[in-house]
Design a protein around this nucleic acid. Structure first.
Lengths: 121, 121
DNA sequence: CTGGGAGTTAGAGCGCGCTCTAAGTCAAGC
DNA sequence: GCTTGACTTAGAGCGCGCTCTAACTCCCAG
């Protein structure tokens, strides 16, 4: 798979894919074709897809790098990986709670404006 | 109220409060005491508290500025204010949905690691 | 043989939201 | 009088996550 195809598939730009690689997020540098171009494997694509989910849910690049390092180090890092994901999970839950709480205020304000608009016209 | 007191109350730093003012987020520049120091009113503090909620829920500074401008312009901007908040509300809902969806994957992975840890030990 | 298009690299640049620095003023307490 | 501490300003700096540029190689179609 070429970088353009992976970009297409993951929604990331080719620039960003190279940046992720430089940032140490890949499990191993993708193999190269004769012309020196990256030829991503299916496993690479799946891994990048996972990265995008973690990223989308707010995990910082640094944490993703730590996670990638653990995966690279192999089987005896399950506990650490689990802990890392659990920490991220807690962040996600907190963020959801924060949003829910702030949503109340926004809804209240919207409602207030609705009434005022009604009242005026 | 001094800037330090407002900082204390809102959890923002004095630096950030001045930055918000420069960024056009205040309804009006807070009045100054004889010594030239800002003396925030209760209304200022309430407004800043609202700003922190909007900010915490992910509203960009630029949107908060637009909102502040509408509030400054007065009563005939209710519709625009409501629209702005509704747009933000939609962003918040989308973000919650995104988090919920990504949470499934994280939970799945955590569960997977739990099993592997169990299986090994 | 000449574009054009897709890839490569190292490294610069950018937008956001702060965060801090430097240099100054002022008031209170020793 | 002198220090300390809270404030003031304009403007620089920073961390993050991209995003883009410049200069290059390679390959293919016309």
């Amino acid at each position: 798979m070429t970088i353009a195809q992976v970009a297409q598939r993951t929604g990331l730009s080719a620039h960003t894919l190279r940046y992720y690689e430089r940032a140490g997020l890949m499990l191993e540098p993708p193999p190269r074709g004769d012309n020196g171009h990256r030829r991503y494997t299916e496993r690479d694509a799946d891994w990048i897809a996972l990265l995008t989910r973690l990223r989308a849910s707010g995990m910082p690049i640094a944490a993703m790098r730590r996670y990638a390092e653990l995966v690279r180090r192999g089987q005896n890092t399950y506990v650490a990986r689990k802990e890392l994901l659990e920490a991220h999970r807690a962040d996600m839950i907190a963020k959801i709670e924060q949003l829910r709480s702030d949503l109340e205020i926004v809804d209240y304000k919207i409602d207030l404006y609705s009434r005022r608009i009604m009242g005026e016209e």
